[in-house]
Amino acid sequence: MADLVVRDLVVGYGPVRALRGVSMRVPSGSIVAVLGANGAGKSTLLRAISGTLRFHRGACRGAVTLGDRRLTGLDAASVVARGVVQVPEGRRVFARMTVEENLRAGGLGRPRRDYAKAHDQVVELFPVLRDRARQRAGLLSGGEQQMLAIGRALMAGPTTLLLDEPTLGLAPLMAARIAETIKEINSLGTSVLLVEQNVAMALSLASHAYVLEVGEVALEGAAADLRAGDEVRRRYLGVADAVEGTLETRTLSRWS
């Protein structure tokens, strides 16, 4: 187990600067949240860590390290082999493949003997994935697809899990369910870097949080402090109303 450290990360998509010198740390075994408005650079940060910027014609400077090993410059598959696995924004399940095949795809990089164990753990965490094993993933509901996306990533046996807006577009009950699962995964020893727009949920799970604003860390601190103060509200939500009410309207507007 090792800390995931991001240092002075600068990312550009051609002339567009998406990150301008971002540094953060995900201590081993912790949950760290990254908050930020649309376009703040949250997904870009995860792409830079996972080595998938090239799929978007992006390039990065700076360093991402896991313990004493550098991740920057590695291709995506090698980052996965180091134990850093991402659940991408919008779930991105393989819609034309069955649920079971999706899980299999997640475990492709691992030795055969680890596969059965990982599979048991995943279907225990998400029994619905066993019930729907032979169904095409594209036919699952949004919540089920999110569970599949997380399950698929767990098949790779991550030591650090990167989650990009896992509750996006989910009803409150399902979002709460996902939050519970994240806690459970973390309690088994996996570090989590959680990108979220659901501030309340993210801050309740995380021990530490960063707020991104147009490609820079505008604010960071212990989650409890951020929850107590109104700094997050002012900076990120841009309003001073009661947090709960504001969150609800934001969530609703995202559904449309």
Binding site: T52, F55, A76, A77, V85, F94, M97, G106, A156
Partner: peptide, 13 residues
Amino acid sequence: EDAETAALMGVRL
């Protein structure tokens, strides 16, 4: 189906 996601799952493209 989705090269980027396959790479994210550790598939060597």
